[in-house]
Design a protein around this nucleic acid. Structure first.
Lengths: 114, 114
DNA sequence: CAGTATCCACCTAGATACTG
DNA sequence: CAGTATCTAGGTGGATACTG
């Protein structure tokens, strides 16, 4: 037993709750791109450098399950599937914007340091 | 080759840049707790339900290397080590606050839905 | 008190190939 | 077009024991 004592999880957990949803290299960026509007599966893929179809599918399913993204399938051939932010997802926009703004400032600082 | 084409990484990457730094279940929460002031190693540990010493050490080292957290060692027995936000870390406060605020609202919504 | 040192199970995510 | 199916290397993080 080296596990540290636990006595106040509630404090700070909201941060974790949010991060859990937008975690993992892709979700935040997906949300970022969907802010601008609806995108089809491959349109989104093209905006996410290096992601595989498998990963994109997985991340979108998780975002959908979290209620942040909506998926609309058009019954046609060739298939057409559109992804967009749900109301809950749009409520995250200020958070995504904060992440983006800070990231930009940080990148600028790093560039200047070099 | 199923990897999707890449042609505009720069867009949205700031989000990823930020998330990379506060990623992984603990860092965001650590930053959250350090907002309130300097904390010693075990004080911090007690606030992070279920974290092991190994993990806490690792996360703190990474935050330190990212320049977000400062570590001050007092040459005494028993040891005393204090952690606090650096200036760069403090610049993240609005972001952490946004994450926390949204998380709280989300948790409240979920509670009401049940 | 504030860590190190090991060991290990699991998961993540990439590569690749195939399909309705 | 929008996925699914497999396989797998590597990393993440947990458990546990030990220490200056």
């Amino acid at each position: 037993m080296t596990k540290l004592r636990a006595y106040d999880c509630a404090v700070g957990c909201p941060v974790e709750a949010t991060l859990d949803l937008i975690d993992g290299k892709w979700k935040g960026v997906i949300l970022y791109h969907l802010r601008e509007g609806t995108l089809r599966f491959n349109e989104l893929g093209r905006r996410l450098t290096g992601i595989t179809q498998r990963m994109l599918t997985k991340q979108l399913r998780e975002l959908e399950e979290a209620g942040l993204v909506e998926r609309v399938v058009y019954a046609q051939v060739p298939p057409k599937v559109e992804y967009s932010l749900s109301a809950e997802g749009r409520s995250l926009e200020p958070v995504i914007a904060a992440l983006a703004a800070w990231g930009e400032a940080r990148i600028a600082r790093m560039a200047k340091a070099a």
